[in-house]
C-alpha cells in the first residue's frame, strides 16, 4: 500500500506502486479532474501540485509520490473561489475545458511562488498544450488572477456550487414563486 496525502486527505493505494500518479488519481481515487492526454509529459493536461510544485502526474509513480502532499483541481478550492479559477471564467479563457485543470493548477502554483509574475514568467510557467487555442487569453487571465490574489481586484464570475433554491430566489426574481 502506497500512502500519500491528496487534497488534504490521507490515501493508501492498493495498486502497483509503479502506477503513475495520474492513473492512481483517476482510476483508483476517482479524481477525474486530472486528465490523460499523452502519458509522456508533452501535453501537461495531468499537471497537479505536489508539495507546492506543478508536476506532470503521468511522469511520477505513486511510489515516488509516497508521503507527499498532492493537490488536484478538485482540491484547489472548495467553491471555485481560487483567484485563478475566477479569472479564467471571467476572461472566458476556457473552451473545451480538457486542458483547463492542468493550466489552472500550473498558474496557481506560479502565483503561490510569485505574486506578481511578468508576462514572460507566465509564458514560461504554462507549457500546457491547448488545441482549442485559449492562449491569447491566458496571460491576461493569470495577470488578473494575480491582481485578485494581491487583493487589488475582486471577481465573482463562477458562482459557488450548491446554492439553495431559497437563496437563489432571493437574488433572482424569476426564481421567486411569490409564496
Amino acid at each position: 500500500m502506497t500512502a500519500l496525502t491528496v487534497n488534504g486527505r490521507p490515501l493508501r493505494f492498493d495498486i502497483d506502486p509503479e502506477t503513475p500518479l495520474l492513473h492512481a488519481l483517476r482510476e483508483a481515487a476517482n479524481l477525474t479532474g486530472t486528465k490523460y492526454g499523452c502519458g509522456t509529459g508533452d501535453c501537461h493536461a495531468c499537471t497537479v501540485i505536489v508539495d507546492g510544485e506543478a508536476l506532470r502526474s503521468c511522469l511520477i509513480t505513486i511510489a515516488e509520490a509516497e508521503g507527499r502532499y498532492v493537490t488536484t483541481i478538485e482540491g484547489l478550492s472548495r467553491d471555485r473561489s481560487h483567484p485563478v479559477q475566477q479569472a479564467f471564467v471571467a476572461e472566458q479563457a476556457i473552451q473545451c475545458g480538457f486542458c483547463t485543470p492542468g493550466i489552472v493548477l500550473a498558474a496557481a502554483a506560479l502565483l503561490s511562488e510569485n505574486a506578481n509574475p511578468s508576462a514572460a514568467e507566465i509564458r514560461a510557467a504554462l507549457p500546457n498544450l491547448c488545441r482549442c487555442g485559449v492562449y491569447p487569453r491566458l496571460v491576461r487571465a493569470v495577470e488578473r488572477a494575480a491582481r485578485v490574489a494581491r487583493r487589488e481586484e475582486t471577481i465573482s464570475a463562477a458562482p459557488a456550487p450548491g446554492i439553495s433554491a431559497e437563496d437563489a430566489a432571493r437574488a433572482v426574481p424569476a426564481m421567486d414563486r411569490g409564496d
Binding site: V89, G97, P101, A158, P159
Partner: peptide
C-alpha cells in the same frame, strides 16, 4: 465554465 474550472 464553472464546471470546467473546478474539474467536475
Amino acid at each position: 465554465l464553472p464546471a470546467k474550472v473546478d474539474g467536475t
